[in-house]
Nucleic acid binder design. Structure first.
Lengths: 242, 242
DNA sequence: TGCTGTGAAAGTCTTCACAGCC
DNA sequence: GGCTGTGAAGACTTTCACAGCA
């Protein structure tokens, strides 16, 4: 597997720290949440928001939010708060939404079909631009106006379209082969819904969404409640397991 | 070592300290992954597995795996490895799979319909036992042999069926109301697919699956690759949604 | 006055490295 | 010899608390 960490961090070039930008991984996923909330606020006509308000609407505490935003530089006004529109722009840039993103989805069976029809993606800047499946009964059909192609066309189409993100929604056994085709097409970011571990080159990033794992984590807590173990602390008023 | 002295243990009820069990949250979701892999190994007839092998197949390193398993007690044999069957049993118990789990799904639109038909849930011990929607065109139809009921029946049905986990797959604006109904039905664990923050009582646990956030995290890394910044910190290439 | 930005402290998670047992 | 279980070190993340600015 490509799990072996390399040796020590090979980062030792002469470039001095230009700007403050070592955004922690944990922060990145929260930035995406803040961005969604900012969109809602803007929609509602709100022009300025305090860290307290934005944090509350995002399900985190305000200190964390301020720390998160501080990695992008200073965008708030002391005594006032943040300008909704400009913070939204800043986050969009940081999250790569100023580059054009185009998404390919492989596997339009049960789950894949739903993902293909999910309006939330396009609405948030991730239009699904290509669909693929192995099943000849599905190839040629259209979903949401997009024609389903055969998986063998993946490398060519992805390269031609400049697909930046691939979603794998095939059954487990097919996932690795599909993943290889995406990589062959130059895709460097993959969201994997299949319950298998994908092997990829080091320069390709994979995130995994495993719904059964989510359920099992919940089941664990159900079981714990029944096993007498008393409720675990709780300082936050709003508890969202992130 | 973990718990500092000072304040006396607040746990002072009649129940004596049963077992050593402070399983960290981060460990729990990995246990679910190990459990899946163990199932595959058993299927394949493998009887014994080393931490190195199981870790490799799960996408983590072996030290982490051993540490994770150590929270459950000692189930391996030095010089040999772990017995697949008995470790599987142990994990199943720990993850609450010896209790009966029953899942209610609310919202059988686009995504919900797919989730209702997803065979992976039943196959992994989470049979979806009830479906709900507001749409009268859907109420009364059957998916996978289960009849869709009106959301107003949620509290009654959940209480009667002993539903332990609720899945919310409605559009955002409807999610909070649906959540309240689930809570009224006694559901204490909720998996939320709607892009909103759910407010719940302290004794109810919510986990959120936000697909747009996943895409945005990937987009961030796409953008970073283009911004020259070479790969940094990130050693793992397979990440589990948190 | 009110709220941001941030060092420093506290807490959590991961990795190392090796003692101990088969 | 081989592999588990685990203290201790290290890395990362969250929280605290307050200086500093509009």
């Amino acid at each position: 597997m490509s799990l072996q960490s390399g040796a020590a961090s090979p980062e030792a070039n002469g470039t001095p720290a230009e700007r403050p930008r070592p955004v922690p991984e944990a922060t990145v996923s929260r930035l995406a949440v803040y961005l969604r909330v900012l969109g809602e606020l803007r929609e509602a006509g709100v022009e300025t928001v305090s860290s307290e308000e934005l944090a509350g609407a995002s399900g985190v505490n305000s200190a964390k939010l301020r720390k998160d935003l501080s990695y992008l530089g200073s965008y708030g006004v002391r005594g006032v708060g943040y300008d909704v529109a400009s913070l939204q722009d800043r986050l969009q840039g940081e999250l790569g939404m100023d580059h054009r993103q185009s998404v390919a989805l492989v596997g339009v069976g049960n789950l894949g079909h739903a993902l293909a029809g999910y309006t939330g993606f396009a609405g948030r800047g991730f239009p699904v631009s290509a669909l693929f499946d192995v099943d000849d009964a599905l190839v040629g059909t259209e979903i949401n106006g997009i024609r389903v192609r055969h998986v063998r066309e993946i490398p060519e189409v992805c390269a031609a379209d400049g697909v930046t993100i691939g979603m794998v929604a095939t059954p487990g056994p097919a996932a690795q082969a599909v993943c290889d085709l995406l990589v062959a097409g130059g895709v460097q970011s993959i969201l994997n819904f299949a319950p298998v571990l994908l092997a990829v080159p080091d320069d390709v990033e994979v995130r995994k969404v495993d719904l059964s794992v989510e359920l099992q984590v919940l089941a664990f807590h159900v079981a714990r409640r029944h096993t007498g173990a008393t409720a675990v602390t709780d300082k936050t008023n709003e508890s969202v397991v992130s």
